[in-house]
Design a protein around this nucleic acid. Structure first.
Lengths: 148, 148
DNA sequence: TATTGTTATACTCTATAACTATA
DNA sequence: TATAGTTATAGAGTATAACAATA
C-alpha cells in the first residue's frame, strides 16, 4: 500500500496538469479578449498593485525577469499596459493598466469565473468546501516554497 | 459576500498555476532526465498503454494532434520512444518506450514524487486527506469535461 | 469520403547569458 | 559594485490550416 504522501503526490501529478490545461484553453478561447494564463496573472497583479515594477510582477507570476519583460512588451503593444520609467528610481519601471486593459481583464475574469462556476456547480456544497480548503492548503505550501 | 462557487473558482484560479509552475520547474531541473510536463505525461501514458496511437496519446495528454506529433519527434530523437507504423492499419503509428525511455521515466517519476512528498510531509494527515480528496474531485470533473 | 498523421506557419512561454543604465 | 531591466539566443508548447497516405 502506498504511503499517504506518495498517494497524494500522485494525485496532484495527475490532476493539476489536467485542470491547468482546461483553464488555459478556456482563457484562450475568447475572441478579442484571449489571454494566456501568465498574461492574465500579470494583468491581475498590476491592477491590484499599481505602479509595480517588473521584478515584482515577475516574482508574483513566477517567471524569470526577461520572460516577464517580453510578456509585458506584448501587453504594451496591445494597449493593455502602460510602462513608464519610475520617477523615484529611474532604473525601475512603473506598470499600470490602461482603461482598455482594465476592462479587458474584467471581461476575461468574468468569462473564466462563469466557466469555472458552471463546472463547480455540479458539486455538492461539501465537495466545493473540500476543494476550496485544498486550494488554500496548496497555495500556502507552494507560495512559501518560493525561496527554497 | 461571494457565492461559494465564485469563491472556489477564484481559489482554483490563484492556486493551480502556482502549483503547476513548481511541478514544471522541478521536472526541468534534473540534468539528463529533464522533461517537460507534457513529455512526462506522454511517456507515462505510452508505458501504460503500449502500442498506442498518436491520437490516443494526444487525447490523453490533452494536446492537438500536430503538437503531439512534434513532441513525439523530440522523444524519438532522444531515443526514449520508438515509433513504428501499425501493422493492422498503416495510417496509424504504434508507440512504445525504449528501455532507455522506461528507465528515464522511472527516474524522473521518482525524483518528482520525492520532491512532492517532501513538501506534503509538512501537512497533517488530515490536510493531506483533504488535498487528495480534492484532487480526485477535480480530476473527475475535468476529465469528464473533455467532450464538451 | 473519412481517418491518421505530418508539415507549414505563427504565436507564446521559458530560461540563461550578456549587456545597458542607474544607484 | 550592485540592482533593474532589456536584448540575444535557443528550445518547447500550442493551435490552425494545408497536405499526404491509407482505409
Amino acid at each position: 500500500m502506498p504511503t499517504p504522501a506518495e498517494d497524494c503526490a500522485r494525485n496532484i501529478l495527475d490532476t493539476i496538469p489536467l485542470v491547468m490545461r482546461e483553464i488555459r484553453a478556456q482563457m484562450r478561447s475568447h475572441r478579442g479578449l484571449d489571454l494566456s494564463v501568465p498574461q492574465f496573472r500579470a494583468l491581475a497583479f498590476i491592477r491590484r498593485e499599481p505602479e509595480s515594477s517588473l521584478s515584482q510582477v515577475a516574482q508574483h507570476v513566477g517567471t524569470a525577469l526577461p520572460s516577464m519583460s517580453k510578456l509585458v512588451d506584448g501587453l504594451v503593444e496591445r494597449g493593455l499596459v502602460e510602462r513608464r520609467p519610475s520617477v523615484a528610481d529611474r532604473r525601475r519601471v512603473a506598470l499600470s493598466l490602461t482603461p482598455g486593459g482594465t476592462s479587458l481583464l474584467e471581461a476575461a475574469r468574468r468569462e473564466t469565473q462563469t466557466y469555472l462556476e458552471g463546472i463547480l456547480s455540479r458539486l455538492s456544497q461539501e465537495e466545493r468546501a473540500t476543494v476550496k480548503k485544498a486550494m488554500a492548503i496548496l497555495a500556502c505550501l507552494f507560495t512559501k516554497e518560493e525561496g527554497t
